[in-house]
Design a protein around this nucleic acid. Structure first.
Lengths: 208, 208
DNA sequence: GGGATTTGATTGAATGACCAAACAATAACC
DNA sequence: GGTTATTGTTTGGTCATTCAATCAAATCCC
């Protein structure tokens, strides 16, 4: 029973947080959403922050599973035999779909980033969230670089940071403005990345 | 006198907000920081949100001026005679310097993004902040595209959204983790962008 | 020019509401 | 019967906002 109740509270917290954001959601609200007495949330979670961290992780689950369903496991190793270029292509497609499907999650994520700036406990969770996804991109990037004719000046990690950043920034624009065409932006990013990855060995320096 | 006082409150608000963030800064804190009675902030600003918006705009001033000092005016027209490629290069350099110099501003900005998700008044300010900078990038991008051998599939606006997003995402990584090498990430972004911009007319499609 | 009057700026306390967390008491379970 | 889960209340504090009162400077009137 207890695990079920705890789960119910975490899920209620996720729903309440998505609706009203961290600072406008009280423990009482969450308890009410879970159909449970106000004190119970504190029985399972020492502080509100702890509950928020659990709620985020809970909310990330479905998105993670979606990645694994297409054979990409953000947290694990890359399959040896896969073509890195194809993985990258698939990754960009997944990013588009993820944003379409899990918009709520990202709204909450951006809220968390704000909270994390001044709350160490949440900052740690945010850092982990970023690291995980960036490292995943870095693994694909390493594979792509290995197949490039011209070795790039930048490290795979730096490239991954730029790509993760772009995806994140595109997500933000979509969250802030629902009319924003995120698919087009991701396609543009993808076009740039592949132009970069398929550079010929010698490329003439630009104008100046 | 009155304008001076108002300015003092806005400036104090900016400093207090940078230090402790929106939700951990009370109107009383701001008044104290400004050396003024608690009620006065509400004499000039109907709500705390209004004051925050003013504080952000105030905080953006120095960064904007830095852009104009090197001849880039985010809000105005591009000089006709400038080489778009050189402008882009300069822009990336400025982005690096901006992050180094105005880290506080960006910490506050990310806080604002979080608040904006559930506050329409702040959301409007956030949208304007994004639009301004993205439109600036789009203007440079249009110039670059005009000089490209192969016309890209993506629109200048979509490319600008991806580039702005990347810069923003890189800033975020730096705010979250001070050890993050933002310069390397911006260099990587720049390398990709220029590889894209200097593509030869016919480029062999990748592996598959 | 100088006293009365209006205006706007500023004060500091009060209001009303809310919240996270602690707690004591009860119910469920084994 | 004792541990665990759950309840509902209390505590101690904070906060944005309001408001009546004070103050200083400008404006007017004679």
């Amino acid at each position: 029973m207890s695990d079920q109740t705890k789960e119910r509270i975490v899920d209620a917290a996720y729903r309440a947080l998505v609706r009203h954001g961290y600072h406008e959601t009280s423990m009482k609200d969450i308890a009410a959403e879970a159909g449970v007495a106000p004190g119970l949330a504190h029985y399972y979670f020492e502080t509100k922050e702890d509950l928020l961290v659990a709620a985020i992780e809970h909310g990330c689950q479905p998105a993670l599973e979606a990645w694994e369903r297409v054979g990409l496991r953000p947290t694990g190793e890359l399959s040896e035999d896969a073509d890195p270029m194809a993985l990258a292509r698939l990754g960009f497609e997944m990013a588009k779909q993820e944003l379409r499907q899990y918009g709520d999650l990202f709204r909450l994520t951006f809220d968390m980033f704000g909270v994390g700036i001044h709350s160490p406990k949440i900052a740690a969770a945010v850092r982990q969230f970023i690291d995980e996804r960036r490292a995943f991109i870095a693994r694909i990037t390493k594979g792509v670089i290995a197949g490039m004719l011209r070795r790039p000046d930048s490290s795979a990690d730096a490239i991954a940071a730029a790509i993760w950043g772009s995806l994140h920034g595109i997500y933000l624009q979509k969250v802030v403005d629902p009319d924003f065409d995120a698919d087009a932006a991701i396609d543009a990013l993808s076009e740039m990345v592949f132009a970069f990855a398929t550079q010929p060995r010698i490329h003439a320096p630009a104008g100046n």
